[in-house]
Design a protein around this nucleic acid. Structure first.
Length: 315
DNA sequence: AAGTCACTCAACCGCAGGACG
DNA sequence: GCGTCCTGCGGTTGAGTGACT
């Protein structure tokens, strides 16, 4: 059972705001200040949802907002921030005085993303598209582009943007070419750590072509500046990935409790720079850890290594 | 001039988390 | 601990508008 609606939607006005409605909001806020948005429509004489009033104030009426176009410096900052933290628009907007998260989000989606695509840069990973595709091919271990999920990666040599005209990014193509089950069983899943900068960006790909559910073995690889690209089955350290599947409702328990390490049944490897992770991964399975724990560990590791990078953002 | 298309951006939606009783 | 309310957030939608045919 979901939450009840914040207001009677059948009786509230929707759509664009009139100057009169704006004036009512401004007058009310000037006297009473912001807050208690659910009461404002009634008190200010507006036939609007309180949430809508808050949004109108936050995104348009606030006196500290800029309404001019984005400067090149602001655009550069958005791109840099997006590269580091991804689509956390509110955090990015806090770096841009006078801009709202909605402004930043819209500007990214309508201008900056397309600009990067035109430049041949994947707007998700902020890497050159060619590099993303090369890494994908390498990581997947499927150099043969006749693989169904790789067909879209065939590019016209004369048109560097041919891929991206079909979708927003190589990342999306990868996602779009996999159903949820395909991604589990047949296709690589690539994760980009949103808290990493360009220099420290970590792209991790898990290749489940030999998922236990298929009755065979599994492979996994990770690539980053601090963790070099490792082809499946070539990793130096054994990664007990099945630990992370213990609570996976999709998988039968018997398939999830695969033992690796000395076991020959798994070829899965995971190379990483974290000593903590490495020690955890070497030999013994750490069944108490979870995938989330691993990500948090990674965040902590990054925080300790590059505190000045992450201090700029609110988490 | 009229119709179509593409783009922009204001606004909406649903979800999550915190505060509070 | 639980339910409710409020607020913040990110994704998505659709009206408005200009460019193009």
């Amino acid at each position: 059972m979901g939450r009840p609606p914040c207001c009677d939607k059948s009786n509230v006005k929707k759509g664009l705001w009139t100057a009169e409605e704006d004036a009512k909001i401004l007058a009310y806020v000037a006297i009473h200040g912001v807050g208690n948005w659910s009461l404002i429509p009634k008190k200010a004489g507006l036939n609007r949802c309180g949430k809508s009033c808050r949004l109108r104030w936050t995104n348009y009426l606030r006196p500290d907002l800029k309404h001019d176009s984005f400067s090149p410096q602001e655009e550069e900052l958005i791109i840099q921030c997006h590269r580091i933290i991804g689509s956390r628009w509110s955090s990015i907007a806090r770096k841009l005085p006078g801009r709202t998260d909605n402004d930043v989000k819209n500007h990214w989606n309508t201008k900056l993303k397309k600009r990067l695509v035109k430049m041949g840069i994947d707007p998700v990973t902020h890497k050159p598209v060619s590099q993303v595709l090369t890494e994908f091919r390498n990581i997947s271990g499927h150099g043969n582009s006749s693989e169904p999920f790789l067909r879209n990666f065939k590019t016209e040599p004369s048109n560097n943007n041919s891929i991206l005209t079909q979708s927003n990014s190589a990342w999306e193509i990868i996602r779009n070419n996999t159903t949820s089950h395909e991604s589990y069983h047949n296709s690589p899943m690539i994760f980009t750590n949103p808290t990493s900068s360009s220099e420290f960006q970590t792209t991790t790909a898990f290749h489940f072509s030999n998922h236990p559910l298929n009755g065979t073995t599994s492979s996994c690889s990770s690539s980053s500046s601090s963790a070099s690209i490792t082809q499946p089955n070539q990793g130096a350290q054994v990664f007990c990935w099945s630990d992370y599947l213990l609570s996976d409702p999709v998988l039968p328990l018997s398939s999830q409790t695969q033992v690796v390490g000395s076991s020959a049944t798994s070829n899965l490897t995971f190379e990483c720079s974290s000593q903590k992770t490495a020690s955890k991964a070497s030999g013994t399975c750490h069944s108490a850890s979870s995938f989330v724990d691993e990500i948090l560990d990674k965040d902590q590791e990054m925080l300790s290594q590059f505190p000045q990078l992450l201090n700029d953002f609110d988490y």
